[in-house]
Design a protein around this nucleic acid. Sequence first.
DNA 1: TTAGGGTTAG
Length: 618
Amino acid sequence: MAHCKRKPSKDTLATNSYNFARRVLVIEDIWAPCCCALPQEGVQPDPVTFVAVLNACASVSALEEGRCAHEQIIRSGCESVVFVRSSLVDMYGKCGSMQDAWRVFNKMPSQDVATWNAMIFGHVKCGQGQKALELFQRMQQEGVCPDRVTLVGVLNACASVVALEEGRGAHEQIIQRGWDLDAFVGSSLVDMYAKCGSMEDAWRVFCKMPSQDVVTWTAMILGYVRCGQGEKALELYKRMQQEGVQPNAVTFTGVLNACASLMALEEGRSVHQQMIQCACHLDAFVGSSLVDMYAKCGSMEDAWSVFNKMPSRDAVTWTAMIMGHVNCGQGQKALDLFHQMQEEGVQPDAVTFVGVLNACASIMALEEGRRAHERIIQSRCESNVFVRNSLVDMYAKCGSMEDACRVFNTMPSHDVVSWNALLGGFAMHGQGKEALVHFERMCEEGVHPDEITFVCLLSACSHSGFVDEGLRFYALMTTVYRIPAKLEHYTCMVDLLGRAGHLQEAENMIQGMPCKPNAAIWMALLGACRIHGNVEMGERMAKRVLELEPKNAAGFVLLSNLYAATGNLELSENVERQRKERDAKKQPGRTWIEVNDAVGIGYLRSGRPRLLRTNPPR
DNA sequence: TTAGGGTTAG
């Protein structure tokens, strides 16, 4: 028998009445001793007590204690009571053990609607929405009439598997039965349509409801956040308050997400103030959203301030901080946080590892990345597709294409992100041939390239001098895949054409762009002018760069080098003097270098080649 | 009935 961890308390043994059981078990949260202790102390629980115990177990997902209660129920002979059985099914479903739920379900001579509902909700909770929908069909075939709880479960199932058509079918049944004006059902309908991406339908249901409560408003707000319409979400949030509906913790998570997506720091701060007024700011769940919002809005100071005040922090809170530092370009700080998190006994999960791998990639910390990889294997997170893609990316960015390929080749399937990470790696290391070969493989596997794929390919062609292939990819992207060219693609093309000496074509390309050129694209052509010694065009390009970015040191340096290379030493010195006058500081160039058999990132041009980080031989 | 942190380019 599964043993209960907590010791029996005398107080829990005073009575087995339903109300007392509920009070002790649920409210005071010392329910576990009761289910084991009652029979030992000679107090006989009745079916009502057992249901209360099962509900308590279900409410906190305590499977072990639930199983323990089940054994007591069998011994007491109460298992034949219908509502005890349906509570058992419900408990197992809510605790995530559908196998146990099915065992009880199949043993029942007949199932009432509550039991079917428990099974449907159980499957949804376990991420098996499709199975829940199949059960709904079976239930109707067996002549059991669904109630409004069933339909709420079905709508949840549709939302979880993005089954819009089935959702519409459920909506029709709901209208036929006259339940569409019910607050619970209506909120679930709004949620279903929003999760299925049909905000128009969600809005229609929302407007038709006789009154909207905080849940309905929140479902609508979350829908807008999910589909990337953060502004609409904030608008709705304001309207909700004008209508006198008070936001709750769930609403705040949605609104903070909206602020994060819009990088709306001021709005975020004002929501934070409202949260303090409602005393919601210390809630661990919402606190993480608050940390994330400040981090995404670039204010790590505020993120830290919230983080430090939180009474408890879980993996989500730490991960939000880690990601925040990565996005601010503080990779080392992110890794320090990762170590601190573990010292405090918080177990990292798959999302944390994604953040850690990003941090390693951003500072090219190969050894740290390898250690993270080991931890990922130990934590059984390596099957997560985000983690795998991040591993490929980390190894590629840390300079080990060998490891990147090894991880890539052991993946059971590749999505477009996996391919892009690999192709980006080849591009970065000037392995144009490899990039072309792997693009062919990608197409053979039937994975559709996206705009990022083409940035990688164009950049790979550019670095390897593959002009014809680059032009072919550009044509493929715009005509076959109908991906409209963006500034990034034009920059790669200008770089490609320019390096190959097609300077005029490159300039024509910039002039023909539908979008406004930025400094980077003029710089790409200026670099090409330096390679090919075109002073006249180089001067024009430098002028454009410095108009947009007056302190762009690279712009001065490239022009100065162009003058020097073409014998205009006086002009070269003049440009260098202007650079110093404008206080445009040079950043030492880093590149992959080898020093004494060690390969790594370092400075080549500051006197002696100096390694910053090595890539030790394996 | 509504909740938090996630991958690829430049």
